[in-house]
Each structure stands twice: as C-alpha cells, then as structure tokens.
Computed example of a mutant assay.
Amino acid sequence: MRLILNIIWLIFGGLWLALGYFLAGIICFVLIVTIPFGFAAFRIGVYALWPFGYTVVDKPGPRPGAAIGNVIWLLVAGIWLAIGHVLTAIAMAITIIGIPLAIANIKLIPVSLLPLGKEIVPSDQPFAGVSR
C-alpha cells in the first residue's frame, strides 16, 4: 500500500515539491553561510519524494545551534512553507483518493517549520517515533 501511495504522491505533487526543496538546498550551498539550511532542505526534499513509510524524529542530545538556526529558518522560510503545505493539503483533501496525500502533506509541516535537529527514519523501525 505504501508503494502505491508513494507513486500517487510522486505524480500528484511530490516530485515538484522535492525539486523545490532541492533548488532551495542548492541556493543555500551557493551562499555558503547557509549550508546547514541546505542540508535541511535536501533532507526534506528526499522526505517529500517518498513520505509514506517514514517519520521524523528529534536527533538525540542538546542542540543549541539547531535551536538558533530553527528560529532563523522559521522566520525566513518555515512559516511560508507550512502555509503552502496546509493549502496544498486542503486542495488534496477534496477527493477521497487525495485524503492520504493531504495527510502526508500535513506530516511535512513540522519538519518544514523546524528542520534542524531532526532525522527521518523508517516508520517500521523499532522506536521510530520515540526520541532517543
């Protein structure tokens, strides 16, 4: 079932969403100072390509740099990305087949708001949803 949902997701928006995150990551790498944001954008882009079967967890340990970076990300890009995901989820939820896709879009909101200090792991991994 995950495979079918991932293929439908890829066709109806996942590819374009991932390409947008990859483009943002490349721009962040070119600007050099924003390289940590580039890594985050690539991580989100890979997650946006194939979201079913994966979940986002916090990386273990204190991360003061990630907290500062997340505040900057939230103000510059995070809020706009989250709004885009909400609007896209609403549009996808109009049809019955689009409801799982809308849920996947909603799953992307937390990591698009605060991406630093996060890790994307398979959902079937033991303790995948529990911070280590």
Score class of each variant (00 low, 15 high):
1 M>D: 04
1 M>T: 09
1 M>S: 11
1 M>C: 08
1 M>E: 12
3 L>V: 05
3 L>P: 01
3 L>I: 05
3 L>G: 00
4 I>C: 10
5 L>Q: 08
5 L>S: 10
6 N>G: 00
7 I>Y: 03
8 I>P: 02
8 I>L: 14
9 W>P: 00
10 L>C: 02
11 I>V: 06
11 I>C: 01
12 F>S: 05
12 F>V: 08
14 G>S: 11
18 A>L: 08
19 L>G: 04
20 G>S: 08
21 Y>R: 07
21 Y>S: 03
21 Y>L: 10
22 F>C: 01
22 F>I: 02
22 F>V: 00
22 F>G: 00
23 L>V: 11
24 A>R: 12
27 I>N: 06
27 I>G: 02
30 V>G: 06
31 L>G: 08
31 L>I: 14
33 V>F: 14
33 V>I: 15
33 V>Y: 13
35 I>P: 01
36 P>V: 02
38 G>L: 07
38 G>F: 00
40 A>K: 09
40 A>T: 01
41 A>M: 09
41 A>N: 04
42 F>I: 08
43 R>E: 06
43 R>A: 03
43 R>S: 04
44 I>D: 04
44 I>V: 13
45 G>M: 13
45 G>D: 11
47 Y>I: 01
47 Y>W: 13
47 Y>M: 07
48 A>L: 10
48 A>V: 03
49 L>S: 07
52 F>D: 00
54 Y>L: 06
54 Y>G: 00
54 Y>K: 15
55 T>N: 04
57 V>H: 13
57 V>A: 15
59 K>M: 15
60 P>R: 11
60 P>N: 06
60 P>W: 10
61 G>D: 10
62 P>C: 03
63 R>D: 15
64 P>C: 05
66 A>F: 10
66 A>C: 02
67 A>M: 12
67 A>W: 07
72 I>K: 04
73 W>K: 05
74 L>K: 14
74 L>G: 10
74 L>A: 15
75 L>P: 01
76 V>Y: 03
76 V>E: 00
77 A>N: 11
78 G>W: 14
78 G>E: 06
79 I>D: 02
80 W>D: 04
80 W>F: 12
81 L>P: 00
82 A>H: 10
83 I>C: 09
83 I>Q: 08
83 I>D: 03
84 G>Q: 06
88 T>M: 04
89 A>R: 12
90 I>L: 12
90 I>R: 09
92 M>Q: 14
92 M>K: 15
92 M>V: 09
95 T>C: 02
96 I>H: 13
97 I>W: 14
97 I>S: 13
97 I>M: 03
98 G>F: 11
98 G>M: 12
99 I>M: 12
103 I>E: 08
104 A>R: 03
105 N>R: 01
106 I>K: 12
106 I>G: 05
109 I>L: 04
112 S>Q: 11
112 S>H: 09
112 S>T: 14
113 L>A: 11
114 L>N: 01
117 G>P: 05
117 G>T: 00
120 I>E: 05
123 S>Q: 14
123 S>M: 11
126 P>L: 14
128 A>M: 05
128 A>C: 05
129 G>K: 12
129 G>F: 07
130 V>M: 08
131 S>M: 13
131 S>K: 14
131 S>T: 09
